[in-house]
């Protein structure tokens, strides 16, 4: 259900469409076997294309590749573990003018991820250095849901390699809601 058209917060958020949702981030480490092995062990993924060099060379990939779903992991910000509780569990810095912070400040502190769309354009190989850049794509009008009033915020993260070629994208939708409005 859409709330009334007169919504100054929605207008403010609309102005941020096309702008960065977080700073462009370069991976702290190049695509490497230590992180790949930690991943394949965590998910019990025994596809030899990730770890068996000789096997990989004989496939159409031609060489070892990183698990495609690691795309987001390579450029994850290094976490801040100290004083995590004081920051409400936020492990990374977010730009203060990010739409997510604007919503937090307006009381829409709840977050629920609703959609994830990964597009894998080129496989990662050892030594690749990825950079990610997330841009706000859409903000829905304010909606009333079972969780309370809120906005569906969608952004697209584009991943590029060391040659500035796009290797993948992720479109992600988060519902930002005000838990205090649940019973309204």
């Amino acid at each position: 259900m859409t709330e009334s058209e007169n919504d100054p917060l929605h207008e403010e958020l609309q102005k941020l469409v096309g702008s960065h949702i977080s700073r462009p981030t370069q991976a702290a480490d190049e695509v490497n076997m230590a992180m790949i092995r930690q991943w394949t062990d965590a998910f019990s993924d025994r596809n030899p294309i990730y770890e068996d060099k000789e096997f990989a060379a004989a496939t159409r990939h031609g060489h070892l590749i990183a698990p495609p779903a690691m795309l987001q992991t390579w450029t994850m910000a290094r976490p801040k573990i100290e004083n995590l509780k004081e920051r409400g569990g936020l492990t990374i810095d977010i730009d203060m003018d990010s739409p997510l912070i604007v919503l937090d400040k307006a009381g829409y502190i709840g977050s629920l991820a609703t959609n994830s769309e990964y597009e894998f354009i080129r496989e990662q190989r050892l030594g690749d250095v990825l950079t990610s850049e997330a841009v706000l794509e859409t903000v829905s009008p304010r909606k009333k849901t079972g969780l309370g009033l809120g906005y569906f915020v969608t952004w697209v993260t584009t991943y590029t390699d060391q040659n500035n070629e796009v290797v993948g994208r992720q479109r992600f939708t988060l519902f930002k809601f005000d838990p205090a409005t649940m019973s309204l």
Binding site: N47, P48, T59, R60, H61, A69, S116, Y118, E119, F120
Partner: peptide, 22 residues
């Protein structure tokens, strides 16, 4: 997403190239 990728390549095998997961 990691488990979905594993689910698909466990079935299709190591020659498979994943294109998207939505």
């Amino acid at each position: 997403n990691a488990y979905i990728a594993r689910f698909l390549t466990d079935w299709a095998g190591p020659e498979a190239v994943l294109k998207n997961i939505s």
